[in-house]
């Protein structure tokens, strides 16, 4: 099939010979043209994945070479193979009395519970602060006061007030994740063009319909960006939250291994957290393409 097509397309003169007409000259291949585009600034969506991949390979090779040639003591930098072996060991035998799954589940449970609470509080509160003067005035003071603080600095307070159980850890994570989502929801309302509100009003929208049909979807792109930042902060705070009086969790595993100078276990923990944080960011990106496909195209 493909051969026939090729013949018909590339050799029209042959077809003509069959019908006894004089052979036409072969179509001249168009001269290769130089396509051009406007000079741009910045990256502008040009792919960077290949460069990133090469960088990763270079870093891994450097790590491998450093340990292979004994440049650094394994106490400080274990060989890649050692980390992989240790991962297999922990996966098989667990660590400090709990399986790897239990450690991972403990961490995931804390961060996901905190994320759910933070998201369901921060979105309505942030939107309300964006549209209501009193709400903005009242809530701005405590939020602006606490959110620049490093979560570690008020962790002792959480423990004194809420005990050493899950409540204090989840509260700490919730507080850390609340602020970026709340602030981004406010920014989303600020970016809302007044024409869009006026158009909806002259179509008969009630205040509640304005909120659900115009304000919330308009702010959604910013809110999703806020959630992505919040999850990043959440993973960062998790280790701090699991520092104190924990017996489970990836953060606990890292801290405990550090005390025994088990550098390879520390590396295993770091890679697990990196993988988790990367997946959650990727999940939010997927959510963005599903929920706000119009982003950047208006």
């Amino acid at each position: 099939m493909s051969e026939i097509t090729q013949d018909t397309v590339l050799c029209p003169d042959q077809l003509h010979t069959h019908t006894q007409s004089p052979p036409l000259p072969r179509p001249v291949r168009p001269h290769p043209v130089r396509t051009v585009e406007m000079t741009s600034f910045g990256i502008l969506g040009r792919p960077t994945a290949a460069i990133s991949l090469v960088t990763a390979v270079v870093i891994l090779s450097a790590w491998w070479a450093t340990s292979q040639f004994g440049l650094v003591s394994p106490l400080f930098l274990p060989a890649p193979a050692e980390v992989v072996t240790q991962f297999a060991n922990i996966y098989r035998d667990g660590y400090a009395g709990a399986s790897l799954g239990e450690h991972l589940f403990a961490s995931l449970f804390r961060i996901l519970t905190a994320a759910a609470i933070a998201i369901s509080l921060a979105i309505p509160i942030g939107l309300l602060m964006g549209v209501n003067r009193v709400a903005k005035g009242v809530l701005d003071t405590p939020i602006e006061f606490y959110w620049p603080l490093p979560p570690l600095s008020y962790l002792p307070l959480m423990i004194i007030w809420l005990g050493i159980g899950e409540t204090s850890k989840i509260t700490l994570l919730t507080l850390a994740m609340f602020a970026p989502i709340c602030l981004s929801a406010q920014a989303g309302v600020r970016a809302l063009p007044i024409e869009r509100i006026n158009a909806a009003r002259s179509l008969g929208a009630s205040r509640f319909q304005l909120f659900t049909d115009i304000v919330f979807p308009s702010a959604l792109p910013e809110i999703l960006t806020g959630i992505r930042i919040a999850l990043g902060i959440g993973w960062g705070t998790l280790v701090a939250a699991e520092l104190i009086a924990s017996t489970r969790g990836i953060g606990f595993m890292i801290m405990s291994a550090g005390q025994f100078l088990a550098t390879d276990v520390v590396f295993v923990g770091i890679f697990i957290i990196a993988a988790c944080a990367f997946s959650s960011a990727a999940a939010i990106r997927l959510l963005e393409t599903a929920l706000v496909p119009w982003k950047g195209r208006t």
Binding site: P193, E195, N198, A199, S202, L203, G204, Q209
Partner: peptide, 30 residues
């Protein structure tokens, strides 16, 4: 403002997350 006075703006104010049909039907949905 009210639905008894329809407004067409200079800058289009269509909702980017709704289809054309849903944009046209917005006032009816309200």
């Amino acid at each position: 403002p009210g639905a008894d006075r329809g407004v067409v703006f200079q800058k289009d104010t269509l909702l980017p997350w709704k289809t054309i049909a849903d944009n046209v039907g917005l006032g009816l949905k309200f």
